[in-house]
């Protein structure tokens, strides 16, 4: 298993090769989301090539109301 922190929560996921696979695994596919790993923005076109590592910290965000 891979241990990731996703939106502040420690999460165990099956070994996945790429960020693209994780997005699918978590049910975010086709959703309007954006991702940062370890405080670095990851453009959508890089999801298939980003390899996940143990203890990576992910932020998966979407649009909300704001002032």
């Amino acid at each position: 298993m891979l241990t990731l922190t996703i939106n502040g929560q420690a999460t165990q996921v099956p070994p996945l090769n790429t960020l693209q696979e994780l997005i699918g695994h978590l049910g975010y596919e086709q959703k309007k989301i954006v991702v940062a790993i370890n405080l670095n923005f990851i453009p959508k076109n890089q999801y298939p090539s980003i390899q996940l590592k143990d203890n990576d910290q992910l932020e998966i965000l979407s649009a909300v109301q704001g002032g």
């Binding site: 939106n7 502040g8 978590l26 049910g27 975010y28 959703k31 309007k32 989301i33 954006v34 932020e59 998966i60 965000l61 979407s62 649009a63 909300v64 109301q65 704001g66 002032g67």
Partner: peptide
């Protein structure tokens, strides 16, 4: 103005707001 926040997959990526 608007913002970005953590969301769970069930919120559909804020689709109503979109």
């Amino acid at each position: 103005t608007l913002s970005l926040r953590r969301q769970s997959p069930e919120t559909q990526g804020g689709s109503h707001f979109w």
